[in-house]
């Protein structure tokens, strides 16, 4: 892996997050570089998923939440009042823990986003769908049955379909919330290979429970504990030579 320093894509500064009275994130500051894979690790309930969902403002859907601090993407504060959330979410795609294909055909699943953004031309949609499915390494498996329901695919294929669906709206950033936790090892390997392919063009932030996965796919890792970032650093350093005792305890399996 080359060690060139990429410019910052997402700059998080003193971010705190509240569910009602309960504070879930405490003054988090992280810089996420462009075209790298950034992993978030930590025990359940440590706030890593909450953090991920602040990046596309999906937490806005939950009642009585509050955000303090700033998140800048390409230098723009995404919690600024003049930001269009719909546009933000087009630029910041998300893949969920459990594959959630829409109850429609494979084609319609991928074309969903482009159609929502006003693309009606059949030829153009065909092109986008094929390109996205190829990017998600699913094209060869489904090209002859694009009209079959997305839900008829296997779990791993469904997850790649969901990735293709995100590709189709051409985001610069992809958020992944434990994308392989519902998949078998073989499907997991395929997704990890895919992530390695996607890093060339996308900035990827991935939450994972699986430390080996973080080690395999990510360039940098942040270790979360009780809503705070304990340590951030290049993945190989964080795993081989952690600075903090908590980090070492967690990655060596003493808790978590």
């Amino acid at each position: 892996m080359d060690k060139q320093i990429n410019k910052t894509k997402i700059a998080v500064n003193q971010l705190s997050f509240f569910y009602g009275e309960k504070q879930a994130l405490h003054e988090i500051s992280i810089d996420i570089p462009e075209r790298e894979v950034f992993a978030l690790i930590g025990p359940s309930g440590c706030g890593k998923s909450t953090f991920l969902r602040t990046l596309n403002r999906l937490n806005d859907l939950i009642h009585k939440t509050k955000v303090i601090g700033t998140i800048e993407i390409d230098g723009q504060d995404i919690y600024n009042s003049d930001i269009d959330v719909v546009q933000l979410r087009t630029a910041v795609g998300m893949v969920f823990q459990k594959p959630n294909p829409f109850p429609s055909s494979i084609f319609d699943n991928v074309a969903y986003g482009p159609r929502a953004h006003g693309i009606k031309d059949k030829k153009e949609l065909n092109k986008i769908v094929e390109k996205s499915l190829r990017q998600a390494a699913l094209w060869d498996e489904v090209k002859d049955r694009l009209n079959e329901p997305g839900t008829s695919l296997s779990g791993g294929q469904q997850q790649r379909l969901c990735i293709a669906r995100v590709m189709a709206v051409e985001p610069g950033i992809i958020l992944m919330d434990e994308p392989t936790s519902a998949l078998d090892p073989l499907a997991t390997t395929k997704i990890e290979d895919l992530i390695n392919e996607l890093r060339k063009n996308y900035t990827i932030v991935i939450v994972t429970h699986n430390m080996e996965q973080a080690a395999r796919v990510s360039d940098k890792t942040a270790f979360f504990l009780d809503g705070e970032v304990v340590e951030v650093g290049p993945t190989d350093e964080l795993f081989t030579n952690p600075e903090k005792q908590e980090t070492e305890d967690y990655i060596t399996g003493k808790f978590g």
Partner: peptide, 18 residues
């Protein structure tokens, strides 16, 4: 209707009505 479907759709940058 599972919330996962709503979130999946909204996360693609679609409006609530869409």
């Amino acid at each position: 209707v599972p919330n996962a479907l709503r979130e999946g759709s909204l996360a693609l940058g679609t409006t609530r009505w869409y």
